[in-house]
């Protein structure tokens, strides 16, 4: 009697979990999750940051701004070797020669990766929730939405790691390429697309950020900080603009006339020298540099902390789901055809 495909998927997933949990990469992933939490908490306690955690906006900013990166690293470690290891370590010779569809093996591996990732992410959320309870007296319900987004991001990022794992021959290469793509290439592409007012909401990293931007208080607090920053930068622009040629022309004209007048000649040497110095400064003033400085500040005013709208969490979830499904499909097409 042939074994049911679903039963086989479960068997593969179960054994993949046992295998992963006993492996070194799981240990490293767990260490990353716990160390990041301890490091953040330790640093906050060592500085004034701990006392500043007074609302959920600040709490999310402290504990979850870096969390997409943590998920990325965990995914790169665990999912990037899921397929390649069968070929590299020759275990495929046992597993693939059995009466089981490659698709069942593939689905079992996805399932086991997601279960482990979901548990590690959950561990972080539980620790963060304890902090929230201690500092804020409550566990914000938004954390549940955030957890959902985190799981979807892990699902999508694992899909990309699966593609890499199904094409390359070495596990270590797969891990490095996964990190490069998820940590460097996708965010850079995303900011390049977004830099010229382009739409980049469909990019993986943008949707991943929803895991902390989904909390409205975070967005409010961010916008408050951004407005303060913008005000400081804008006032610096106003001050500097006063020193440009345009701003100084009336003063230069007046001084030119004054120097040529008898009133100037009537002054003592010290005053004459000071006025001459001011005249020279105004004429040789760093107008070119000032203009560059002003344009840099104007860029900072608009670009460094742009205004953030409340994210569309549903759309972000769909984007992550789409990235995941497309990636797994590509990886599956390659995996079922891959020869030993």
């Amino acid at each position: 009697m042939m074994t049911n495909d679903f039963v086989q998927i479960g068997v593969v997933a179960k054994n993949e979990i046992i295998k992963s949990v006993r492996g070194r990469k799981f240990l490293i992933s767990t260490a990353i999750v716990f160390l990041v939490f301890l490091l953040i908490t330790g640093l906050q306690m060592a500085t004034n940051g701990w006392d500043d955690i007074k609302d959920i906006g600040q709490f999310m900013s402290v504990y979850f701004n870096m969390f997409p990166m943590v998920i990325t690293l965990v995914v790169a470690l665990l999912a990037s070797v899921a397929i390649v290891s069968e070929f590299e370590e020759r275990t495929a010779l046992i597993l693939f020669t059995r009466p089981i569809r490659r698709t069942s093996i593939f689905l079992g591996k996805i399932l086991s990766c997601l279960i482990i990732e979901a548990l590690l992410i959950l561990a972080y959320y539980i620790m963060a929730s304890i902090v929230a309870y201690v500092k804020l007296g409550t566990v914000p319900s938004d954390l549940l939405t955030s957890y959902g987004v985190s799981i979807l991001y892990a699902f999508a990022a694992s899909g990309i790691a699966f593609i890499i794992s199904s094409f390359f021959k070495k596990g270590s290469v797969c891990t490095i390429i996964s990190v490069l793509i998820l940590v460097i290439i996708i965010p850079i592409s995303s900011s390049m697309i977004g830099s010229d007012d382009g739409e980049n909401w469909y990019m993986l990293d943008q949707s991943a950020d929803t895991l902390y931007t989904c909390v409205p208080e975070y967005v409010d607090q961010y916008n408050k900080t951004a407005e303060q920053f913008k005000r400081v930068v804008d006032s610096a622009i106003t001050i500097l603009e006063g020193f440009t040629d345009k701003g100084l022309d009336p003063a230069k004209e007046w001084l030119t006339e004054f120097i040529q007048s008898p009133d100037y000649l009537a002054l003592d040497d010290e005053h004459r020298e000071s006025i001459l110095k001011m005249f020279m400064f105004l004429n040789t003033g760093a107008d070119g540099n000032l203009k560059v400085m002003i344009s840099v500040l104007k860029f900072m005013s608009v670009g460094v902390l742009p205004h953030m709208d409340y994210p569309d969490v549903g759309r972000a979830a769909l984007v992550l789901l789409a990235w995941g499904i497309v990636s797994y499909f590509v990886a599956w097409v390659r995996f079922v055809r891959r020869e030993f």
Binding site: R22, E89, R90, I94
Partner: peptide, 17 residues
């Protein structure tokens, strides 16, 4: 492959099992 046992080359096993 329902009723087939195989040993192809020198297969490896999951070292943690």
């Amino acid at each position: 492959l329902q009723d087939v046992g195989t040993v192809i080359e020198t297969p490896e096993f999951y070292p943690y099992l």
